[in-house]
């Protein structure tokens, strides 16, 4: 009796499964048909609107058709794609096209009511359009725990008004570690050196060590004088080898040479590696000796970096390198030099 009941249940579950499978198959099949139709439609829309956008960039004001609701995302995507590849006036012309065709209104609606992907596309659009009216709506997104949303909103705010946005953006960069460095770099680069130099220097100097290390690479986007000041100050003061390493990695100005040289015998091998690389970038003739010394370093990557640095110094040519190779005693120094000389020959 009990056994029969179990069998009954199993049997009915099996039948239910069959129905579920049939429904899933029908759904998948119809979805596939719909996807084919959608892709075809997207191709048509892309072809039409690409032409309008090319015309707009070329300076003519095209007469654009009304965008149907179902096509708005396709057009928005295409428009953003154009924006990402353009610079200067062309972007303004695309913005004009967007205003004429009502793209900005659609983007605002999507910002309010869209799904995540639609909202992201809307944020990007409104940022490119430098739409000041959405400033207050975008600000809460910057502090959102959703990384992509937060980064997108920060970029949009910087595009709209970099000076007003930079404090909020730098606060986020220093207080959270989830922003991908490459996207952060894009935002700071777009904000421009004039806007970010002073606030970034201030933020770096005020930040604790681990955060300093995270922020330092971005000094490449600020004015060289500001970068030099902050790098010198930090490299002189810090006891943290991590921070020192990053400072050395981003130093480009020969004014730092004496500071770089002072760390040539640093106990941490990763610091010595950065010293070798820095000497390769900015070194003078008197640094050849230091680099030759590093060729015998116990750490492989310090030796390799020192050898590479020697090849990059403008006054060290191949015969000079060969002479160094003959004169150095340790076998590992000779070998690493032979390696980079060969590498140099190939390139």
């Amino acid at each position: 009796m009990y056994h029969e009941l179990v069998l009954d249940i199993v049997y009915h579950v099996g039948v239910l499964l069959l129905i579920l499978i049939a429904l899933l198959f029908v759904f998948l099949f119809l979805h596939r048909l719909w996807s084919i139709y959608r892709d075809r439609r997207m191709k048509q829309i892309n072809a039409i609107w690409s032409q309008h956008m090319v015309d707009a960039i070329g300076g003519t004001v095209p007469k654009v058709p009304k965008i149907r609701r179902r096509d708005i995302l396709t057009v928005l995507f295409l428009w953003n794609r154009f924006q990402e590849t353009l610079i200067g006036e062309s972007r303004d012309r695309l913005n004009e096209l967007a205003r004429n065709s009502g793209i900005n209104h659609s983007a605002r609606q999507l910002l309010m009511n869209g799904r995540l992907s639609q909202r992201l596309l809307a944020i990007s659009t409104l940022g490119h359009m430098r739409d000041r009216d959405v400033w207050d709506r975008l600000t809460p997104f910057v502090v959102s725990s959703h990384t992509t949303l937060s980064v997108a909103a920060a970029r949009a705010l910087v595009q709209i008004n970099a000076e007003a946005a930079i404090t909020l953006v730098l606060d986020q960069i220093s207080s959270r570690d989830d922003w991908p460095p490459r996207k952060t770099a894009t935002i700071l680069q777009e904000a421009g050196a004039d806007t970010i130099s002073k606030p970034l220097v201030r933020t770096i100097l005020d930040a604790p060590n681990p955060i300093k290390g995270r922020l330092l690479p971005y000094v490449e986007f600020i004015h060289q004088a500001d970068a030099s000041t902050v790098l010198r100050q930090l490299a002189q003061q810090t006891n943290d080898p991590g921070v020192l390493s990053v400072c050395l990695r981003v130093m480009q100005d020969p004014v730092h040479l004496s500071l770089v040289r002072s760390h040539v015998r640093h106990p941490e091998s990763h610091v010595r590696k950065e010293v070798a690389a820095a000497l390769g970038r900015m070194g003078s003739k008197q640094d050849v000796k230091r680099l030759v010394g590093l060729l015998s370093d116990e750490a492989w990557y310090v030796r390799y970096e020192a050898a590479k640095a020697l090849t990059t110094l403008p006054f060290v040519d191949k015969p000079y390198l060969k002479r160094i190779q003959r004169s150095v005693a340790p076998r590992r120094a000779k070998k690493v030099l032979q390696h980079v000389i060969a590498e140099h020959g190939l390139s």
């Binding site: 953003n80 799904r115 995540l116 992201l120 770099a185 894009t186």
Partner: peptide, 13 residues
């Protein structure tokens, strides 16, 4: 959903 902006363009830096 989150990948939509990455598909727009990708400049290597």
């Amino acid at each position: 959903s989150t990948r939509v902006l990455d598909e727009l363009s990708h400049r290597f830096n």
